[in-house]
Design a protein around this nucleic acid. Sequence first.
DNA 1: GTCTATATACGGATAGAC
DNA 2: GTCTATCCGTATATAGAC
Lengths: 203, 203
Amino acid sequence: MNKDKSTEEKIKDAARRVFTQKGYAATRTRDIAEASGVNLALLNYYFKSKENLFDIIMLENIREFSHSVLAILNNRDTSFYQKIELLAAHYIDKLIQNPEIPIFLLAEVKDNPKKLFAALDKRADFKNSIFVQQWLELKDIKKTAALNPFHIIMNMVSMIIFPFIANPMIRNRTGMNQEQFNNMMLERKKLIPVWITEMIQQK
Amino acid sequence: MNKDKSTEEKIKDAARRVFTQKGYAATRTRDIAEASGVNLALLNYYFKSKENLFDIIMLENIREFSHSVLAILNNRDTSFYQKIELLAAHYIDKLIQNPEIPIFLLAEVKDNPKKLFAALDKRADFKNSIFVQQWLELKDIKKTAALNPFHIIMNMVSMIIFPFIANPMIRNRTGMNQEQFNNMMLERKKLIPVWITEMIQQK
DNA sequence: GTCTATATACGGATAGAC
DNA sequence: GTCTATCCGTATATAGAC
């Protein structure tokens, strides 16, 4: 399986894992070489430098992330409320598989936002998404400051992603094990859309 | 002002700033020496090693954090709903002052949760807090799964902290500047308690 | 306690053989 | 394309003078 991958792919796969786990600064090119089973010199042969390899990985991460949000936010075939359910379900499932992505991504983006976002799809601007369009067409929304759709998106994203970022601290404080944590997140797959819906509906 | 601080304090202050901003691995002891205006050799004289200095800083960070939550959660003189308002207001104000703390703390904790939490106050267990006690005494709570107070705390903490962690990404995607971001968070000081209250109240 | 100078190790990168 | 050997800058840590 891994055997017939090109050397270049093997390096990228290992780099993705190691960078994600340890962050850029703490990762040694030697770690990546070992993890990929490839000779150290080949990293520079294929990718020129550690930084360049990192940039490639990060760009893919960000593109993939952005792309999958857009696919949901800009789907004309789903309703506003369906989108909320889809976002919660999709991301929680994804994050249970790859729990280290958010903290890695956000920590590294902090150091160099410009470089990393430079190549990002302009359409990723959520203000022009179908989701926001549908929001504006909704009849049952509140007439309070909470009406700002930005807050609602912010709340949803926060409630989905933050627990994964705080996972080690949560587990330490509550004594949960990883399985219990995941079950808690699966519970939230159903709860978050309910909470969000309550926030926006007129009463 | 800074002049009459002891050399040891000057180093710690600078270390706190530099570590918080760059993370452990990316921080060079030279950076701390420069930032504190202290000779490089003195770092090892006072703190033995970079790692030891880091551990001291982190422990203080975690203790301080834990202590300030507890002070609110375990106050007998405030009601349940007041605590929610106090938590939101207190943390948002604090995070506007020190926006880099959460991502730094969570990123580093991830690498070594055991060491860092070892010395933490056992009472920090929120399950035994007055806050949860007051929750259980509430009459107007929902009879749904959302009743689990853990989810409610999780939501509140998420909605407060996550925006700061995602700040660079949010600003990049929305075009907000830092002042607009802070105003948005000040808005949330009032909104979050409202949202949380709605989540838990029987309808 | 504070400094200069330096030992020592590590990590990224490359030269050059195969 | 892949390997071994190595260069070289950099970073932590310490020795030793003041």
